[in-house]
Simulated scan of single mutants.
Amino acid sequence: MNLTLSSLGHAARQDPPASPGVLCFPCTPRNPFPAFIYAAPSLPPRVGAADLIATMQAGKNAMASVKETAENVAASAKSGMDKTMATVQEKVEKMTARTPAQKEMAEERKQVKIREAEVNKQETMQSNAVEHQQTLAGGQVADPGFYPVEGAAGGGTGAARPSAAHDPFLGAR
């Protein structure tokens, strides 16, 4: 217990504080000033091993979520860059093309590259979700689900995802 000694002045001017944890030494002929000892608040109870493990597990889960989110953002950014590069290459190829068939081939190559970028992004996100589920389950695998992609078997148009929002023609062609 930490103790602090303080002298508050003359007894006629000071009343002892009404607080639990305060020890009062009143005036005596040898000491005309009262003194009060304030006891420091008690320390919190010791943390048990189970509480510590639960706290550490919560921190581990939070870090796994942050890691998954960061990796998903990176995958989405890379996919966006790949789609933009495909569009730029397609425009350059169309400008240098001499026949309508060459222009059509450039358009098809662009669509293939866009589909590949979207598939790569979805595969990365799915593997990140599996890793996150493994972390949460302590190494056991849980199925995060499958996200259909344009061009994949049974897939949708891909235009509803925010990552495809920068290309309004992604699902329309």
Score class of each variant (00 low, 15 high):
2 N>A: 14
5 L>A: 12
5 L>V: 13
8 L>V: 01
8 L>R: 04
9 G>L: 05
10 H>A: 04
13 R>S: 08
15 D>F: 00
17 P>E: 07
18 A>P: 07
19 S>I: 04
25 F>I: 13
26 P>Q: 13
27 C>T: 15
27 C>D: 14
28 T>K: 04
29 P>D: 08
31 N>D: 08
32 P>G: 05
33 F>I: 06
35 A>D: 12
35 A>V: 15
37 I>Y: 13
38 Y>Q: 14
41 P>M: 09
43 L>V: 07
45 P>N: 04
45 P>Y: 01
48 G>F: 06
50 A>W: 03
53 I>W: 10
54 A>K: 10
58 A>L: 08
59 G>N: 07
59 G>W: 04
62 A>Q: 11
62 A>Y: 05
62 A>S: 07
63 M>Y: 08
66 V>N: 08
69 T>K: 12
70 A>L: 02
72 N>I: 01
73 V>A: 15
73 V>H: 13
77 A>P: 03
79 S>T: 10
85 M>F: 12
86 A>L: 08
91 K>T: 06
95 M>S: 12
97 A>N: 02
100 P>C: 03
102 Q>Y: 04
103 K>R: 14
104 E>G: 02
106 A>I: 05
108 E>M: 12
110 K>P: 03
110 K>M: 15
111 Q>I: 04
112 V>E: 14
113 K>Q: 11
115 R>Q: 09
115 R>E: 11
116 E>Q: 13
117 A>T: 00
118 E>T: 09
119 V>K: 15
124 T>S: 12
125 M>W: 02
129 A>K: 15
129 A>W: 11
131 E>Y: 10
131 E>L: 12
132 H>E: 14
134 Q>W: 02
134 Q>R: 14
135 T>K: 02
137 A>N: 09
138 G>S: 00
141 V>L: 11
141 V>W: 02
142 A>T: 05
143 D>T: 01
145 G>T: 00
147 Y>R: 13
148 P>W: 09
148 P>H: 07
149 V>S: 11
150 E>L: 10
151 G>D: 07
152 A>V: 04
153 A>F: 14
157 T>W: 12
158 G>W: 01
158 G>Q: 01
159 A>F: 02
159 A>D: 11
160 A>K: 04
162 P>H: 00
167 D>S: 11
168 P>M: 03
168 P>W: 01
168 P>Q: 06
169 F>N: 15
171 G>A: 10
